[in-house]
Amino acid sequence: MSKVLSKEFLQRWAPLIVLFSLCIIVSIINPNFLSVRNFARLATSSAAPLMLAIGVTFIIIMGSIDLSMEGVMAFCGASLAVVMLQFNSFVEWGFLAIPVAIVFGVAIGFVNGLIHVKLKIPSFLVSLGIGFSCIGLTMVMTGGVRVSASDKAFRLLLTERFFGFPLMVYVAFAALLLAYFIQKKTALGRNLYAIGGGEELAHASGVKVERVRIIAFALAGAFYALGAMFAVAQIGSVASNLGTGFMFVSITSVVVGGTALMGGIGGVWQTLVGVLIVAVISNGMVLVGLPTYIQEGVLGVLVILAVALATNRKAIQLVK
């Protein structure tokens, strides 16, 4: 019995158990939770956070952190809308805005990684600075006004439904599979775990640590751009506050899902579970009738609990 309930077992399955218990609790309080409509709503609202969380998962697996997503998201979202407005319609070349946004995301991530690695500055501060700068850039680009992105073809992401779920849910799922492929089947993915497990060891065994780090940040930028795309499709316009709140939600999701901040453990499926936990909590708060603005507080408590449970405190001497 004690073997089955060992700490490892709990750490591995706790997020899923939490997710199911939350679903059961919320649906007992409000049976509407279990409708297809509500599930579609849950999935739609999770699409953008999932992309951001996947992006930062790669970084956290390495034991680093990225706090730039709010700015990167705003910048990519705004460039998406601005480029789209240059063309007559989404179908006639307007779709080029999507690769442009992704390239911007990659470029910002690349700069982020480059500064972090070459100047040896902790990633959380580099990314914090980059994120702030990006919000400024977005404001300059948009002139501080809301840019509309109401092209019908683009917004099919939200409006076109298959089996009750909007198109963007399927696209997000495809991106999740792609992320899983990168994590599991590529040298990059394995190197991320190697670095997270122990950077000096990875270096000694021939992993090009610096290069892997930079690529990981660039990759994360691509996923932030996808998240921006979903958020823009959902809202139908962009302002410089597009990303507000997403940093907290995505990092919470990653750690609640079971990816350790120390690095080396976890992955994108865990992140999916984490995103769903956060989504069910905020969805549940609405269904139960709690104000949504306390969400940030609830997430704060959640982060502390999740990180505290996942950290092997005996193994750490020094924490800053």
Partner: peptide, 30 residues
């Protein structure tokens, strides 16, 4: 414009850290 100042402060932040950080104290930068 006030918004653009933010770009600048982000850059100053990074530059200030790069100039002042004591690299002998950090073995692995995460």
């Amino acid at each position: 414009p006030a918004e653009a100042q933010q770009i600048f402060f982000g850059v100053v932040l990074i530059a200030a850290i790069a100039l002042t950080i004591d690299r002998s104290k950090v073995k692995v930068v995460k």
